[in-house]
Amino acid sequence: MPLVVICNPACGAGDGYTFVRDHVLPVLDHAGKTVNNVFITERTGHAGEIVVELLKASSQSKQRTTVILSSGDGTLHEIVNAVYSSVGGDLSSVQHLAIVLVPSGTANALFSSLFAGGKDETSTTDPTTQRMAAVQQFIEEGRVAPLTLAKSIVRDMAEIKQEALSVVVTSTALHASILHDSEALRSTVPDMSRFKMAAAQNIKKWYYGTAKLLPLESGEVLRHDSDRGEFVPETAEVEFNGPFTYFLSTVNVDRLEPQFCITPLQKSFITRESMSMDVIMLRPMREEGIEDNDKGRETAAESTIQALSGAYRAGAHVGMRFSKEYNVDKFIAEYFRCGGWQWNPDKADEYAHLLCCDGTIFHIPSEGAAICKVLGRNDRKFLVY
């Protein structure tokens, strides 16, 4: 079984290769695991090119390739999309690819979700040992889990303009605005604080448009009932009018940073058979007394901050109610499990036209829409330790 290492030296703190050299390779050698090649990426898209060639070779040998990937979530996104493009969007003929994550990016959402805690400063586990968790699983021949893929299509009227796969998050509204604006800060603020800076710039924005949730294989859309602590079939309309402050879906992960647990009920994704995604949305006009004006935005921003702060407290925003007395029966966040969604931004709202797929930003055309759907079981060709 071919074993290769791919390092992205440009992501995170820039130690993707040095960590592999100093820690990963010696441990693999000691365990008797032969590394066939070590690649250091040299440009955007290089990791994807490498994996496409590896899979071509493995299809001839019929052997599953394993990649030890020292990078962040963005490089994995790049690899998945390169493979998808190389086969014209038909993954049925692709050999399974096993991936061993060495978290070297900024947020490392997938690794942090698989090995909860990630870079948790409160953990007593040695940071190097934490970072080697997936490598240790590989050495011990632990279980692998197939990744669920979400496919996003950006279209203008009936014509498809762009498409991309996500393995972590797809979003519009505040999250997409944060990722869009934080990119300008990357060179001067390489750590996660740039996301907080971008959040502060956008926290009072409202995003106008409509969102329609698409059903699961069962034909249902499920809403989380926080009073009952379970998902129940949605009985109301599954099309929602804006404005929105937050709209985000995840597959495979319950958190976007080691401590930012935004979809905490995704935690059981490895054992769940249903092909689904979890959706979190915040709609400011649900809070009674809010009006579409500056004062309303100030008040709504407080509720958004309250909810997102709850995500940093083990997902406490799920079940969090509006604070005012006449809103005590309403939950701030609406949480759903579904098969996908369609986002139709208001033509005049520039920021509502931003779409984020695993950190990559797309722009929805003026008369366009974004559609995000979970792909089927036969497309789960990427496995993680």
Rank of each mutant, 00 (worst) to 15 (best):
M1R: 13
V4D: 10
V5H: 08
N8T: 12
N8F: 09
G16Y: 01
Y17P: 07
Y17S: 03
V20M: 13
V20R: 09
R21Y: 00
L25P: 01
L25G: 03
P26M: 05
L28Y: 01
L28E: 06
H30Y: 05
T34W: 15
N36E: 15
F39S: 07
F39M: 03
E42W: 05
V51R: 09
V51A: 03
L55W: 06
Q60A: 15
Q63G: 06
R64W: 08
R64K: 06
T66D: 15
T66C: 09
V67T: 13
G72F: 03
T75W: 05
V80I: 14
V80R: 03
A82S: 15
A82D: 04
G89D: 07
D90E: 03
S92T: 10
S92W: 02
Q95D: 13
V100D: 06
L101F: 12
V102F: 02
G105H: 13
T106I: 07
F111R: 15
F111S: 15
L114Q: 01
F115G: 08
E121Y: 01
D126A: 14
T129H: 13
Q137C: 14
R143L: 10
L149I: 11
A150N: 08
V154H: 11
M157I: 08
M157Y: 15
L165S: 12
V167W: 07
V168W: 10
S171G: 05
T172F: 05
D181T: 07
D181F: 14
L185V: 10
S187Q: 15
D191R: 12
K196Y: 11
A199R: 00
A200G: 09
W206S: 01
Y207F: 11
Y207E: 02
Y208I: 00
G209A: 02
E220A: 14
F231W: 07
F231R: 12
P233R: 04
P233E: 02
N241W: 01
N241L: 09
P243A: 00
P243E: 00
V253S: 12
C261E: 11
T263E: 09
P264G: 08
L265R: 10
K267Q: 04
T271F: 05
R272W: 02
S274I: 07
S274K: 14
S276M: 08
M277E: 09
V279E: 12
R286C: 10
E288T: 03
E291H: 14
N293H: 04
G296Y: 05
R297Y: 06
E298N: 11
E302Y: 07
S303M: 07
T304H: 04
Q306D: 05
Q306E: 05
Q306C: 08
A307F: 05
L308H: 00
G310Y: 10
G310P: 12
A311S: 14
V328E: 14
V328L: 11
R337V: 11
R337C: 13
G339S: 09
W343G: 02
W343N: 00
D349K: 03
Y351Q: 13
A352K: 03
H353P: 00
H353K: 13
H353A: 07
L354D: 05
T360V: 07
T360A: 07
A369M: 08
L375Q: 02
N378W: 08
R380A: 12
K381L: 10
F382W: 14
